[in-house]
Design a protein around this nucleic acid. Sequence first.
DNA 1: GCCACTGTTGTACGATCGTTCAACAAGTGC
DNA 2: GCACTTGTTGAACGATCGTACAACAGTGGC
Lengths: 239, 239
Amino acid sequence: MKGPRTRVAAAGTPARVAPEEEGRQPRFHRQLPQQRRAALIAATIECLKRYGHEGLSIRTISAQAGVSVGLINHHFPNKDELIAAAFRHFNRELVDGLKAAAGRATSPAARLRAFLEASFSLPNLDADVLAVWVVFWGLYRHSRPIQRAQRETYTDYVRLVRGLLADLLGKAGEGGSTRTRGRGGVNLRLAAIGLTALLDGLWLEWCLQPGKFRPREAVALCEAWVECLSRRATGWNSL
Amino acid sequence: MKGPRTRVAAAGTPARVAPEEEGRQPRFHRQLPQQRRAALIAATIECLKRYGHEGLSIRTISAQAGVSVGLINHHFPNKDELIAAAFRHFNRELVDGLKAAAGRATSPAARLRAFLEASFSLPNLDADVLAVWVVFWGLYRHSRPIQRAQRETYTDYVRLVRGLLADLLGKAGEGGSTRTRGRGGVNLRLAAIGLTALLDGLWLEWCLQPGKFRPREAVALCEAWVECLSRRATGWNSL
DNA sequence: GCCACTGTTGTACGATCGTTCAACAAGTGC
DNA sequence: GCACTTGTTGAACGATCGTACAACAGTGGC
């Protein structure tokens, strides 16, 4: 975009370290691009937790990571791509953590319970974490890379929830059509949508007003919802 | 903050309108502060819809409102207060609209249905509107005025939902204690929290992935939830 | 027709933004 | 020890940000 500029002589190197100092240490450590990228992503998320949307500046992030301002554009083409990478990483951590929690349990009911308890406990329920999500969502509509990352991991998330519900409701309709119904005619697709919404809504609500209810109550609400699903089915077919 | 500056002569008035033009119209119209403030708030929300968080600049908003950059600081002490005022107005419009929709129905069941249908139809379900909410939520943690506005109107919103549920579940526990329970021992406080969460979650979900389900299905999910509440109560007392 | 009032304008300012790029230096291979 | 690669630095740039304020101008009262 910009034409080449001839840098004027740097006005003399301002003796950063006294030359007679014998035990001088290196001014920086080189790192593999992969490691440095991970560190910059971690710094981005940390800045989001601390300062919200205003923490998303090159100077704030580079200071948090302990590097100079120019390094970010060496590892990422621009700021938006760094943010999108942080968003993708944040998504991945969440989904993988929930998957792992559910995977440690044995029965379908225990898996769902473990999934819910992981959702409503640290590190996910932290108000800082939810603040990070909200800032990302605010960027969603005007950032193509963020939209891409969201779509990818959201699909995984839906698949996870649907799998848990399908096992619990006694139906192996995980990868099936959108018309699959569990025992009693429950629409599995709508059940997953509803559970996801209830869970996300409670998540958000707890963040905005942490004193209004307790995480255990949120888990109980979600389980009550699922229990309702497994018992009744009338009224679902009119959609 | 800044010391007084002596403005240099404005380099000659650059003949804005040709003096010989007889039919010249006024260069601006004065308005009452109350009207101008409302216009600036509307412009702020419109900018949020169009440009997201990046639309929240003095220059963008003043251009949208058709005024100069200096006018905003004449009617609002600073930018944050303008944004908080817009947030308060946005909240008020939503709650009042839902209240009005519910108020037009007669029976408790019809009131809840009207409330849900108003929630999942225009103007509330518009993706632009939800994008505005998300940006506001992103600012929530670091803006005291926004926190204040949120707390005020959120209380109203919870009161509305609780009133609807209390009527429907046959319990007059609107203003009562937090332990009030409807017919069958349903915890009214938790019921309201759950319905609010489900509704907000579906709202958010529909915005992020509009194609995944239809507004009518969202209404049906919420009604199924309430119907569950009115039928069963076991498992709620263990909290 | 003139005055006082005040809503409104638009330039200016200092701060900060994302990005560029020439220079520097930490490692690596020999 | 010396060339070489390349991760890293940090000053500079132009753009844009929120705010301040002196000048301007429309409005209503007389």
